[in-house]
C-alpha cells in the first residue's frame, strides 16, 4: 500500500469533522472519495497532509508513519496535494510556478521534469513565460497539477480537479490522471462529479458527515441503488 489512513479524526475548533476514517490507496490505483459538499472530503485531504492541526489517527505513506508530522515534511516524504481552488501563484510565471514545486528525484518514484509535464499538457508549454494569473482557468488547473507533480510524489491527492471546468478540459484531466496511474502513482481523488470519477477511478469510498459509509468498486456502488441514492443522490 502506498497510502494507509487508519482511524483519522479531525477537528475545526471544537467541531469534529472526521470520525475514524480509514482508507488505503495502492500503487497505480485511483481511489475516488465521493460525497456531498460538506461531507468532509476536503478536510480529509487536508488532514492527511497535516494542514488540519487538530487531528488524531495513523497515516502511513509508503511504509512510513507520517501522522503528526508538519505539512512540509509530509510533502517532502512524497505526498502531493492539488487543492480545490488551485492556489497557483498568479504573480509568478508558469515556469516559476513549476520551479516552486520542484523536489529532488526520489528512488522508485516516477521523475517529472518541466519538459515531460509540457508534453503531458501541451497548452502549458505555449504559455510558459506568462504570469500564471493571465492564463485560462483550464490552463491553471493543468498548472496546479503539474506543479504538484514536480515534487515527484508517490501518492497524489486531487481535490475536485474537474470542478468548474468546461467538459472538454475535464476530458483532458481524465487523460492526465490515467497517465499518473500508469506511472505507478497512487491517486486519491475527492470528487462530486460521478462521470469523471467513473472514468478514472478503480475503487470508491463514500464519506458522509465525516464517516465512511461505503467502500467498493464504482460499478458495485452504482449498482447498489440504495447506497447511491442515500449518499450521492444521483
Amino acid at each position: 500500500m502506498k497510502l494507509e489512513v487508519h482511524k483519522l479524526d479531525a477537528f475545526y475548533g471544537r467541531a469534529q469533522i472526521l470520525f475514524g476514517v480509514t482508507l488505503k490507496v495502492a500503487a497505480g490505483e485511483a481511489l475516488a472519495l465521493l460525497g456531498r459538499n460538506g461531507a468532509g472530503k476536503s478536510t480529509m485531504l487536508r488532514a492527511i497532509l497535516g494542514l488540519v492541526a487538530a487531528r488524531r489517527g495513523r497515516v502511513v505513506l509508503d511504509g512510513r508513519d507520517i501522522s503528526g508530522m508538519a505539512t512540509g515534511r509530509i510533502v517532502r516524504r512524497g505526498l502531493g496535494w492539488v487543492p480545490e481552488d488551485r492556489r497557483i501563484f498568479t504573480d509568478l510565471s508558469v515556469e516559476e510556478n513549476l520551479e516552486i514545486g520542484r523536489q529532488p528525484p526520489r528512488a522508485g518514484v516516477p521523475h517529472w521534469t518541466v519538459e515531460r509535464l509540457f508534453s503531458l499538457f501541451p497548452n502549458l508549454a505555449e504559455v510558459r513565460r506568462r504570469p500564471a494569473g493571465q492564463i485560462s482557468g483550464g490552463e491553471q488547473q493543468m498548472l496546479t497539477i503539474s506543479r504538484t507533480l514536480m515534487g515527484n510524489p508517490c501518492v497524489i491527492m486531487l481535490d475536485e480537479p474537474s470542478e468548474g471546468l468546461a467538459p472538454l478540459i475535464v476530458e483532458r484531466m481524465a487523460v492526465a490522471v490515467t497517465e499518473m496511474k500508469r506511472e505507478g502513482l497512487g491517486v486519491l481523488l475527492a470528487e462530486q462529479n460521478l462521470t469523471f470519477s467513473r472514468a478514472v477511478s478503480d475503487r470508491a469510498t463514500i464519506i458522509e458527515k465525516g464517516r465512511i459509509r461505503f467502500e467498493g468498486t464504482l460499478e458495485c456502488l452504482l449498482a447498489d441503488e440504495a447506497v447511491a441514492r442515500a449518499y450521492l443522490a444521483v
Binding site: 494542514l51 512540509g72 510533502v75 501563484f89 504573480d91 516559476e96 510556478n97 516552486i100 514545486g101 515534487g151
Partner: peptide, 17 residues
C-alpha cells in the same frame, strides 16, 4: 522566487514541500 510565492500564499508554499 520562493519569497515571491510565499508573499502570495504561504500555506500553498508549505504544501509544496
Amino acid at each position: 522566487v520562493r519569497v515571491r510565492a510565499a508573499t502570495q500564499d504561504r500555506e500553498m508554499v508549505e504544501a509544496l514541500g
